[in-house]
Design a protein around this nucleic acid. Structure first.
Length: 490
RNA sequence: CGGGGUGUAGCGUAGCCCGGUAUCGCGCCACAUUUGGGAUGUGGAGGUCGUAGGUUCGAAUCCUGCCACCCCGACCA
């Protein structure tokens, strides 16, 4: 925890791991590559869920649930899709165990499944197989469905929240009568994600589209939001895909149009995952631990009493009861930490580690003076203020903290977008400064692959506010129509 | 799956080369003094040294097999 979060040291990954564990968010489980999300970490995820879910409902979507298992034959119906996921699937081959006679439990070879089941790495195939039965006419469209689920991708190397073998996410799957409508949906949901990242997580993101090489397996267009972490590496924080008619064709999903013609439906899918937890942690945390933006913090205000006698404690209790009620009336979540098993200094450090945005400390001295001590987590500043009008002050302060955290991340992000005009410069910036590199690229997959091999940097996106600009590719010298963003990424 | 490394108390470790039943710190329990930034003192509990076998009078230590985990690669819309 003392390595220095903003330094781009090789210990960053160790630092991150320690933080996740010490702040009580998650830990590795006994199952290889899988993670246990602990109650405090899960509370943050639940905040994300509830805010996102509300937006999904507001934009006309409903929740549903589809099976965990996907028959192998479904999975292989869309060629590029299966190719994209084939190397990281968990496969169920048997449905029974037995005692081998010596007390060992073994797989019963007689219970071999005729068709293997894939544990979903994503649900496009099972969902499109289902949609086939739901869609006959243009009157059945659009279908706007989301599911909250777990998925499994058998990754070789894992990192808490950022890449685990099993993770939690939401995946939206929509069906439309026209390509225009589907594209509009994909863009709309990207904006929902972007706004959530910026307004709630206080993480600025770049909205863009993926190059063909980085596109989702089976998509015609992948929109992405890209965030920047404090070590200078980029993180893909959410994606929204225009799937064209690929899945409709693979699963034969047609509808009768107003004109009485049989047409394939147009699809989108979009998702964000517990990876957002990683983004949140790496975007804001400092050497003292987690920094949570108030809109997301499960506990927004923690109150710590400081006392010597029972009488002093009773006095403070009475005041805190009143203050808590006022704060709760303003929709602020409050924790009164009056454990008598820990001393104040310990509690201060502990809640800072857990990222609680605002701390109120009240001692006997304060009770005499009619004051409290307010301590901000984000700026690590303290001030003594009057108890008069305190709840109003706290409401305003929480908003200010939210804004300050965002502005700090935004400043860092903007300072780490560098325009370069030569490969030498590209490599130099990548090694020393990190962040996004804006440069001309000839648009070919070969060049992307070569750059990745030589520098580990990948194209993150073609920004949506892409400006046409004549130039030459810094890698090959071929003509280019504009700048794209490269970065090393998680 | 390749290359490297590590398994000793809840966590982090010393001991291993050179064999004699295990060190220190954190944490935990009790009591006392403390309480406005991670308290202090005294006492205490907790270990099949990853696992199976071998060598030996004797193995955490030497040898062999196995297992697990970590790091670096490959992989990761």
């Amino acid at each position: 925890m003392s390595k220095g979060i903003t330094s781009r040291s090789e210990d960053y990954s160790q630092w991150y791991n320690d933080l996740v564990i010490k702040a009580d968010l998650a830990e590795y489980s006994a199952v290889r590559g899988c993670m246990v999300i602990k109650p405090y970490g899960y509370a943050i995820w639940e905040r994300m869920q509830s805010i996102l879910d509300k937006r999904f409902k507001e934009t006309g979507h409903s929740n549903a649930y589809f099976p965990l298992f996907i028959p192998k034959s479904f999975f292989s119906k869309e060629a590029s899709h299966v190719e994209g996921f084939a190397t990281e699937c968990a496969v169920v081959t048997h449905y029974r165990l037995k005692n081998d006679g010596t007390g060992n439990i073994v797989v019963d070879e007689d219970a071999k499944l005729e068709e293997e089941l894939i544990v979903r790495p994503t649900s496009e195939t099972i969902i499109w197989n289902t949609y086939k039965g739901w869609i006959e006419s243009y009157r059945d469209l659009p279908i706007l469905v989301n599911q909250w689920a777990n998925v499994v991708r058998w990754e070789m190397r894992t990192r808490l929240f950022l890449r685990t073998a099993e993770f939690l996410w939401q995946e939206g799957h929509t069906a439309h009568a026209t390509a225009e409508e589907a594209i509009a949906e994909a863009k709309q949901m990207l904006e929902v994600y972007a706004e959530f990242a910026e307004k709630t997580l206080a993480v600025p993101v770049i909205r863009g589209r993926k190059t063909e090489n980085e596109r989702f397996a089976g998509a015609l267009e992948t929109f992405t939001i890209e965030a920047l972490m404090q070590d200078g590496k980029a993180l893909q924080a959410g994606t929204s895909h225009f799937l064209g008619q690929n899945f409709a064709k693979a699963f034969d999903v047609k509808f009768t149009s107003k004109e009485g013609k049989q047409e394939y439906v147009w699809a989108t899918s979009w998702g964000v995952s517990t990876r957002l937890m990683g983004a949140l942690i790496m975007a804001h945390s400092d050497d003292k631990g987690l920094v949570l933006p108030p809109r997301l913090a499960p506990i927004q205000v923690v109150i710590v009493p400081i006392y010597k006698t029972d009488e002093e404690k009773a006095n403070i209790d009475a005041y805190v009861e009143k203050l808590s009620a006022e704060l709760k009336a303003n929709d602020i979540s409050v924790k009164y930490d009056d454990r008598d098993t820990q001393r104040p200094g310990f509690k201060f450090a502990e809640w800072e580690l857990k990222g609680v945005p605002l701390r109120v400390a009240i001692g006997a001295r304060d009770m005499q003076n009619g004051t409290v001590e307010l301590a901000r987590r984000d700026t690590q500043t303290k001030e003594t203020v009057s108890q008069e009008g305190l709840s109003t002050r706290i409401v305003a302060l929480l908003q200010e903290i939210q804004e300050t955290i965002y502005q700090k991340a935004l400043k860092f992000r903007d300072e780490h977008i560098t325009e370069v005009n030569s490969y030498e410069e590209f490599k130099e910036v990548l090694e020393t400064k990190g962040g996004f590199i804006s440069c001309h690229w000839d648009g070919t997959v070969e060049t992307e692959k070569r750059v990745k091999e030589e520098t580990k940097a990948t194209t993150r996106c073609i920004p949506l506010d892409f400006q046409e600009e004549e130039g030459v590719c810094i890698f090959t010298g071929k003509p280019s129509k504009g700048r794209v963003l490269f970065a090393k990424a998680y």
